[in-house]
Design a protein around this nucleic acid. Structure first.
Lengths: 145, 145
DNA sequence: CCATAGTGTAACAAATAGTGTTACGGTCTA
DNA sequence: TAGACCGTAACACTATTTGTTACACTATGG
């Protein structure tokens, strides 16, 4: 589970959970993601904190969705994983009182804010149900490889 | 010089160079960036490859701009430093033949492409001359701290 | 023609962040 | 009460960026 594809991976998992409808253990999810259960718990914990999934301990426990896929957007998952900020403008901080540095930072900040708004808008309009439907359709059409 | 503020830092340096008009040594640039000359050469080498600056060796050598600030956009600097791609969609690759994973990746890819276009547009419309002017104006107004 | 002040670059050290692993405690249920 | 779960801390591993050292090359001034 490398390169921070956490958003993509979690969406992948959540859609499967939604389609199957049941409860999944960290162990099984770890297998899906080629990783191990502790990493899964760490990441799923963020989703739980945000109210997307819930966990139950003990025998027969595991993870389950708190609501149907149609009520979960990509933005929800993003927020759960990374908080408010999607894109972080990497600014410089070598001479905070230098007017040139300040002017450069201000321009960059604004540009990144625009891009972040775009991303937020795109993320908000895609539901996990939609992803599930696309997947089902393409599986039916035999586009598996 | 941490956290990949390379874009912001290089813009900062280039604007100073443009305003001063002369040649700067790696040593002096390194002081501006609180780093050391080798790191500066590494980064400036990318800008040279892209035709934004040129370097001369030997006594009296150093770095200079190849054209005025008004002919350098933030996008130029970005491209020189990181190539074509500004935003890289972090996709998952655990089960390349899984239709769910594919559908999720496709949606994310598209969202990131939109955001990248926004960023590209914003970067293209800001010239370093503009940043220089803002800096000069705010310096004159006494907003230094 | 050589001392000096530069860049170019390879090789390596250090810091950082993400990921993987182990270990152990808590919780539910058959 | 044993077994199958999650929760979490602590630590090892890995990759990337940044910093450093070292040395070769180049141009200039005296």
């Amino acid at each position: 589970m490398r390169q921070d594809g956490r958003l993509a991976r979690m969406i992948h998992v959540l859609v499967h959970m939604g389609l199957l409808g049941g409860r999944e253990t960290s162990e099984r999810i770890a297998q899906m993601l080629n990783t191990n259960p502790v990493v899964v718990r760490r990441t799923m914990a963020s989703l739980r904190q945000y109210g997307i999934v819930e966990s139950e301990g003990g025998r027969g426990g595991g993870w389950s969705l708190t609501r149907p896929l149609k009520d979960i957007t990509v933005l929800d998952v993003q927020r759960a994983l990374q908080g408010e900020t999607i894109l972080d403008a990497p600014l410089s901080n070598d001479h905070p009182s230098c007017p040139v540095e300040r002017a450069a930072n201000a321009k960059l900040q604004r540009a990144f804010e625009s891009a972040e708004q775009t991303l937020e808008r795109e993320f908000r309009k895609v539901t996990l149900a939609e992803i599930g439907e696309i997947a089902m359709a393409s599986a039916k059409a035999g586009k598996t490889g």
